[in-house]
Amino acid sequence: MSRDEWLRACGVERADALVLLRELAGVSRAALLAHPEAALEPRCLAQLERAGARLRAGEPLAYVLGWREFYGLRLEVGPQVLIPRADTEVLVEFALAHLEPCGPAEVLDLGTGSGAIAIAIAHERPAARVQGVDTSAEALELARRNARRLLPAARPGGVPLWHLGDWMQALPPDAGDFDLIVSNPPYVAEDDPHLQALRHEPALALVGGRASADGLADIRLLVAQAAPRLRARGWLALEHGYDQAAAVRQLLLRVGLREVHSLRDLAGIERVSAGRAPGP
């Protein structure tokens, strides 16, 4: 079968099909345009057919490929973790804006999943000491692999530390307090109609272990546990749903945080809310 014949017959979105050709068969868009009639090798064709079948069954492209780009980094992903989204880069941008480029800082990522947020911060702020928490041992193993591959072992802030457990309770007794705590926690309501479209991603990362009608059960607990662990003038920043910004700001205010505000994503939706601990 030729490249063009497979492209027309594969039954998936053209953009996704072009990505499969590039990643699995090594055929760039330019090569396809120059030689659409070129035959695909049997091994490549078999790989493309398997990948196309997975896409037709509704599996996300990131899981089929085994990776997703996030903040310029190619992260390994799988069905044990949420697929990193571009919207979450707003949270990374906030973190970087509030960390000195070369200064030391204690940073914590709660619900780290693939390690996307923690690793992006560690990559851009080499002196920061970064830690991540997740309730899934499989997710943490994936985060470790991503960190080993994407971060230099000799970075000034050391290799990220990963902790298995439930929010702040996962931290060891000597963990200390933090200059910045970030999280993309579960925030989808238990009866949200969008869950069907997300059925291939882990429910634990979407609705959490404390499913609720408003999707805020884990965020309430996270805010209550994390705020007391901020250093003076340290920040807590959380991603949340498109309609949850006002509720999350109220939660931040109730625990005594100041400078509470929300940031918008590329679509203009309030996607991240943050608050700052009082000064000394």
Rank of each mutant, 00 (worst) to 15 (best):
M1V: 10
S2N: 12
S2R: 09
S2E: 07
L7G: 01
R14K: 15
L24K: 06
S28H: 06
S28V: 09
R29A: 12
L32T: 12
L33P: 03
H35F: 09
P36C: 11
A39V: 09
E41Q: 09
Q47M: 06
R50H: 07
R50P: 00
G52R: 02
R54D: 04
G58A: 02
V64C: 00
V64Y: 00
Y71V: 05
E76W: 05
V77M: 11
G78Y: 00
Q80V: 09
L82P: 11
L82H: 09
P84D: 08
V92K: 08
E93Q: 13
A95M: 04
E100N: 02
E100Q: 05
C102D: 06
A105K: 00
E106H: 06
E106W: 06
L108D: 06
G113Q: 02
I117F: 04
A120W: 03
R125H: 03
P126Q: 03
D134R: 05
S136D: 12
E138Y: 07
R144L: 14
N146Q: 14
A147W: 08
A147M: 09
A154Y: 02
A154W: 11
R155A: 11
P160C: 03
H163A: 02
M168L: 14
Q169I: 00
Q169K: 05
L171A: 08
D174H: 08
A175D: 09
G176T: 07
D177F: 05
I181D: 13
I181F: 13
N184L: 14
P185R: 14
P186T: 15
Y187T: 09
V188H: 15
Q196L: 15
Q196P: 10
R199E: 15
P202Y: 10
A203V: 11
A203P: 09
G209V: 06
R210M: 12
S212H: 07
D214N: 08
L216P: 11
A217V: 11
A217L: 10
D218E: 15
D218N: 13
R220P: 13
R229D: 05
R233K: 08
R233N: 11
G234A: 05
L236D: 08
Y242H: 08
D243M: 03
D243R: 12
A245V: 04
A245Y: 04
A247L: 12
L251R: 11
L253C: 13
R258F: 01
H261M: 13
A267V: 06
G268I: 04
I269Y: 01
I269A: 03
R271T: 10
S273E: 03
S273C: 05
G275C: 03
G275A: 01
R276I: 01
A277H: 02
G279L: 01
G279T: 00
